[in-house]
Amino acid sequence: MKMSTTAKPDTEPRNLVGVSADGSDPAPTPRAHSLMDALVFGRPAPSPDLLDPVLSLRKVHVYYGDYEAVRDVTMSMGKNEITALIGPSGCGKSTLLRCLNRMNDLIPGARVAGDIRYHDIDIYQPDVDPIELRRRVGMVFQKPNPFPKSIFDNVAYGPRVQGVKKSELADIVEESLRHAVLWDEVKAKLKESGLALSGGQQQRLCIARCIAVKPDVILMDEPCASLDPIATQRIEDLMRALAADYTIVIVTHNMQQAARVSDRTAFFTAELDDAGVRHGRLVEFDVTNKIFTSPADGRTEAYVSGRFG
């Protein structure tokens, strides 16, 4: 990273987004006001070339019945990186995300053409078990969806269905909740319903639930869409921390969020074809810094600078 802004000391950046360590600061949060501020994060820049892709998509098309929602996407997600998918509403980000753990199989009429590989495995081969795939490629949904069960059972559910021994559950639950920075808030009420938590806590519970099965990849579809700035902040911090162990793909409408947390960004848009039908297309996929400071495509530039969509 050659930008002068990277010169900021490493200890500072957290304060840029302005929440005191205990999260109790009621003062208006001096969040990053420009994308440039957001990019000042003191993270090592990812190498321009993906060296170690965990997921790679080649010429992927996704259909709902006859409608081609996503057309010809080729990109990869690197190990221990956060890849952000951005773009205007309806351009197929969620659709593409759901293909990565075959959640699209559950939508009647949904169909995928092309090649999606998890490491070396083509996940749409008939001999691939989607259940097994979803254990490795976990998902956090846009709307927090805790099960109508206790906090403990929410987190223990994934390990339980995979046959983890009862004696190990308590440790897994604690570890996952700690990992999701929720433990201190809920340790005294593990037996209470997960639905009794606040929205931000519920979302962190869903993240804890997801990491309890020790996946390899975590897919997040607008995980902060229903959260306030403080909860958003927590989840962003959490994502950065999780990136040390996991490969993360996140869909977001929040440019600053993409700029703040992701290593690479893919910009999608909905394009009209000759017949006047809209298809989601990948416009540009690059290192996040590049996308936000010197995008190659004019449409990307227009979108990230807020002149479009």
Partner: peptide, 18 residues
């Protein structure tokens, strides 16, 4: 029962029957 519960469970690698 909301679909999101089914999806949440399936996304954790539970089988349909589970």
């Amino acid at each position: 029962v909301p679909q999101s519960i089914r999806f949440g469970s399936l996304a954790l690698g539970a089988t349909k029957w589970q």
